[in-house]
């Protein structure tokens, strides 16, 4: 029996890969020998990632792309298929964030931004890879939800809307695309290091809030994007998860244990 978690040579698209959780996932997949397609909105960060992947010897394609660009997603998928001959997985990670804003102050623009980049951007990415995965009779799609969204974190209205909408799309896609051999699952991570103060002395109040957050969960620390979140995403991209679809996996140290 072949190794189930082997992603060697798999062609995997990771959107929003230049920072935060996306960057950690991209690095972990690179470690596993995947051939990567990485997207980001900003060219500088993307170039830095591309240089890093060159240094690792990871075959890759880097594309500046906003997830709201539906046609861009379609063009990218075609280019990926032309270059690599296949598309094995998609990690639809890109998502704009909005800092804490009470619901009563949320504007239409706020909602549009989050819903356009989140559920709609995720769907455009999913649509772009489906034809290739369907033809292959195999595909893996990982969407990104959020622990904060399941809990309904106060101050994060548009973000929560986006993430819960993504979980909904995940389930519908699982039902519709299952017969094609495409699994679609959602990961809800907690990994906030890239938002925490780099130097706790610089912002002790914020640092204290972050420290407090993790105290009461079973694995009492923040998730490391590459080493904690990455392997869970890798599992969902691999054959090991071939009989799981439509599921939401918490990658949050046990903070939330859904019914």
């Amino acid at each position: 029996m072949s190794n189930d978690i082997d992603l060697d040579g798999h062609v995997i698209i990771v959107t929003g890969a230049s920072k935060g959780i996306g960057l950690g996932i991209a690095r972990h997949l690179a470690d596993l020998g995947a051939r990567l397609v990485v997207t980001a909105r900003k060219p500088e960060a993307l170039e830095a990632l591309s240089a890093e992947l060159d240094g690792r010897g990871t075959p890759h394609l880097a594309r500046q792309l906003n997830t709201t660009d539906r046609e861009g997603a379609v063009a990218l998928a075609a280019d990926v298929h032309a270059q690599f001959g296949r598309i094995d997985g998609l990690v639809a990670n890109a998502q704009t964030f909005l800092s804490v804003t009470p619901l009563e102050e949320i504007t239409e623009r706020n909602m549009d931004l989050l819903l356009d980049t989140g559920p709609k951007g995720t769907l455009w990415g999913m649509q772009s890879v489906l034809p290739y995965m369907r033809e292959q009779g195999r595909g893996r799609i990982v969407t990104m939800g959020s622990n904060a969204a399941i809990n309904g974190a106060a101050g994060y209205g548009p973000y929560v809307s986006s993430k819960e909408a993504i979980r909904g799309i995940t389930r519908v896609a699982a039902r519709e695309w299952g017969p094609y051999g495409v699994t679609v699952n959602c990961v809800c991570p907690v990994s906030v290091a890239h938002r925490a103060p780099a130097n706790p002395e610089d912002d002790p109040v914020r640092a204290a809030v972050f420290a407090e957050t993790f105290k009461s969960q079973p694995i009492a620390r923040d998730g490391d994007a590459a080493n904690d979140i990455g392997p869970i995403v890798a599992f969902l991209l691999s054959d090991a998860s071939q009989y799981m679809t439509g599921q939401t996996l918490m990658a949050d140290g046990g903070a939330i244990m859904r019914p």
Binding site: G178, I219, T245
Partner: peptide
């Protein structure tokens, strides 16, 4: 799965 605990994985073909 080092960062997962208290979870139930449903493995049932969706």
């Amino acid at each position: 799965s080092r960062y997962m605990t208290g979870q139930t994985l449903i493995v049932d073909g969706g």
